[in-house]
Amino acid sequence: MKKSVFFGALAASALVAGAASAQTLAEVQDRGSLRCGVTTGLVGFAAPDANGEWEGFDVAVCRAVAAAVLGDGSAVEFIPTTGSTRFTALASGEIDMLARNTTWTFSRDVDLEFEFTGINYYDGQGFMVREDLGVTSATELDGATVCIQTGTTTELNLADYFRANGMSYEPVPIETNAEAQQQYLANACDVYTTDASGLAATRAAFEDAAAHIVLPEIISKEPLGPLVRHGDHAWGDVVRWSLNALIAAEELGITSANLEEMAAGTDNPEINRLLGTEGSLGEMLGLSADWAKNAIAVGGNYGEVFDANIGPDTAIGLSRGLNAQWTDGGLLYSPPFR
């Protein structure tokens, strides 16, 4: 009898383990908070401010998803992850989603079994050096000591780039952006390489930002976006369309200033469908009708989030570039809300 109880428990635990992967939405709603994996600290993308509140471009995605699901953009538990712990954290279920300037690659999608739910920043890998080094191009870096975060695509791109150009280098492996900053500033490495946006954010935090330059070469495509586990498509849809809602809102001219006014009903049926005054898009996702309105209400549309965290008026000072709407010559293009 005891044995049968034991095997029953065994079977039940196996079932729970099997089913757990397909109900993240229900888990988040039951828990009342979203567990979102972010970086350990990259100003502009994800870093705690003076009051310990997380803020940044990736953080805004987490908050938008939390607002869409729970109606509250502050119901997020931010879990800092390093380049080498992030995938384990997501695969094991410790976090519900990862928004950690993570590059969408074939092997991460297919072999590691993650579902990238869109691209929130089109990036590429660059190099930062001290201006007084006299280097003006990455092709002059033969023999340089390079600080590189382990477990990233940039690590592999770096090896490929130097090999393709017949140059040698000395890699200094580091774990977090803060460590890289410390080593680079102490001149323990000549070059720091990571995504160009990350370089701009790191450089902005330096006391003497003007003494450092980002070299013109961009050696890779780095489409950065939020991701979830494979197999839970309902949850993947929630994250995907929360991000799309922010992008579509900018395209449709919905801002945090006119959100309430638009939500009262407009002549544009797509705006009405997005904001829930028409149709039943929210119901199809398993969310409330005003899910997208809540998501946009947290920090405004994509353009507002961009400008507030990493835009030209911030210390990081990134221009929209590829990340402009398709109507402005960029790559941002949300599928229609229909």
Partner: peptide
């Protein structure tokens, strides 16, 4: 960042291949 066994197999290889 000393590239010992933990740094290669236990960190970079584990992370790049996803074979935890």
């Amino acid at each position: 960042g000393y590239m010992d066994l933990t740094g290669t197999l236990g960190n970079i290889t584990r992370n790049q291949t996803g074979r935890e």
